[in-house]
Design a binder for these strands. Structure first.
Length: 270
DNA sequence: ACCCAGGCATTGG
DNA sequence: CCAATGCATGGG
């Protein structure tokens, strides 16, 4: 059996909740209790198993992607020990034991996804993103491979606005598809440098850059300043909180995991 | 018919 | 430096 072990604790349902919470996600598709995603040319099926997940096919190409996707790199033990000192996080970490924030394995996909989510509701964002995937991605068996930069170079302003992008966002997507910078090399750079380079690209502001650090690079200290949902979660769970921007320091050095637990905690009403 | 939702660039003080 | 503005969709 092709079982991929994940560090304990791990809760499959909780960790994949985001892929279902806002409607279907054609690139991370829920099919009969399993998560489907295209890696390279092949569709991979990921389902819960004792001690981890059953992955089909499991090999040198799919293994690292699945580990990334399921947040295997987070050190939950250290986070949980640290969280005991904060009453809110102590409760959330106990309610959400084994929740590993799902990560976006591909940098281009991460940025395009964030652009679609700028300013609109997550339901609207997922709807538009799914139409982009259907139109410019490649379907495998059930799931789709997210559109590559190369494929999106065939897009035009009109084709993108027809999918629901605003004119401005269509420009951002086209610009990013032409962008010569190698997004993969950002992984080697410190947080501030990644942020500086990303923000210099049109359509990418502070919010998008920080989510890239958090959700693609899994940087522990990424704290999504300016995120409406996170601000709301902070105001709800910490009524005494002042400026959410400064409030992130409270979670040093676990801002990323804290943000994910606050958001998911609020969404699941725990 | 509103209003709000996991922002951003642009413009004008 | 900060405030105001337009943007397109989905859900309430």
């Amino acid at each position: 059996m092709a079982v991929l072990r994940l560090p304990e604790p791990f809760d499959f349902e909780l960790s994949t909740e985001r892929f279902r919470a806002f409607g279907p996600d054609l690139a991370n598709l829920w099919v009969d209790g399993a998560l489907h995603r295209v890696v390279g040319r092949r569709e991979v099926r990921i389902e819960p198993a004792r001690g981890g997940v059953r992955v089909e096919p499991l090999d040198a190409e799919t293994r690292p992607v699945v580990l990334k996707l399921l947040g295997a790199e987070f050190d939950l033990g250290a986070f949980y020990r640290w969280a005991r000192r904060d009453p809110v996080l102590r409760r959330l970490t106990r309610e959400l034991v084994g929740f590993r924030p799902p990560l976006a394995p591909d940098p281009f996909e991460t940025l395009i996804g964030s652009i679609t989510a700028q300013q609109v509701s997550m339901f609207a964002a997922f709807a538009i993103r799914n139409r982009l995937i259907e139109r410019f991605g490649r379907r495998a068996e059930h799931a789709y491979a997210f559109p590559t930069a190369k494929r999106l170079r065939d897009a035009t302003q009109d084709k993108l606005t027809a999918l629901g992008f605003s004119g401005r966002k269509a420009e951002y997507v086209l610009g990013l598809a032409q962008e010569p910078v190698d997004l993969r090399e950002l992984a080697e750079l410190p947080d501030d440098e990644v942020k500086r380079r990303l923000v210099s690209i049109r359509g990418i502001g502070e919010w998008t850059a920080i989510w890239f650090l958090a959700r693609h690079l899994a940087r522990p200290r990424a704290w999504p300043i300016g995120d409406l949902a996170l601000d709301k979660a902070v105001r709800t769970l910490y009524p005494e909180a002042g400026d959410p921007r400064a409030f992130g320091e409270r979670f040093e050095p676990f801002q990323n995991l804290s943000a994910h637990y606050l958001l998911t905690g609020l969404r699941l009403q725990v």
